[in-house]
């Protein structure tokens, strides 16, 4: 995947954003950022000519039980560089700015993350479930997920918490 973003440029970003952090011990350190500054950071990464990360390669979330982490993998076609940006979110109320404001093509991937992981994207044009049924009330990729029980009520398929075995 080309080469990783240079450390001195990461340092520049760290000076520019006070919540930015990275682990200098790692070979390819992810750039951690506070969720309030995420949108500004992404704008800088995309629009600064010396960075020009024009492609959102991948976007997802990971449930670490104490917190939820958003992972963004950006790629610059011009310089053949890539960088990983991570944001830690509160597990009970995960909310983050939608990247559709910068990359319109993240629409479906954000809907998927919302559907399966329950992360709410602010200012998303069309935040609906995409893979699971619309009336499903759980997020399957969470680590504490218990499958819901399908039942037909009045001709409509509904989903219910499983009855305990006892």
């Amino acid at each position: 995947m080309g080469t990783y973003f240079e450390l001195d440029k990461l340092d520049l970003l760290k000076a520019q954003f006070d919540t930015a952090e990275y682990d200098a011990e790692q070979a390819e350190p992810a750039l951690y950022i506070g969720k309030e500054q995420l949108l500004d950071l992404m704008r800088v990464l995309r629009e600064t000519p010396t960075y020009s990360f024009d492609r959102m390669g991948m976007l997802t979330a990971v449930d670490y039980k104490d917190y939820i982490e958003m992972v963004y993998s950006l790629y610059s076609r011009r310089y053949d560089k890539w960088v990983t940006v991570k944001v830690k979110l509160d597990r009970d109320n995960p909310e983050v700015e939608s990247m559709t404001q910068i990359w319109e093509g993240t629409n479906f991937e954000e809907r998927e993350t919302y559907d399966l992981m329950g992360v709410k994207f602010l200012h998303h044009p069309d935040l609906r479930r995409i893979l699971m049924p619309d009336n499903y009330e759980a997020h399957p990729l969470r680590k504490d997920f218990v499958p819901l029980e399908p039942r037909i009520e009045g001709g409509v398929l509904t989903w219910h918490k499983q009855r305990s075995m006892s």
């Binding site: 390669g57 991948m58 997802t60 992972v71 093509g105 479906f108 991937e109």
Partner: peptide, 8 residues
């Protein structure tokens, strides 16, 4: 996580 091209 799988980034699927046809999905995007």
């Amino acid at each position: 996580h799988i980034r699927r091209p046809s999905f995007v």
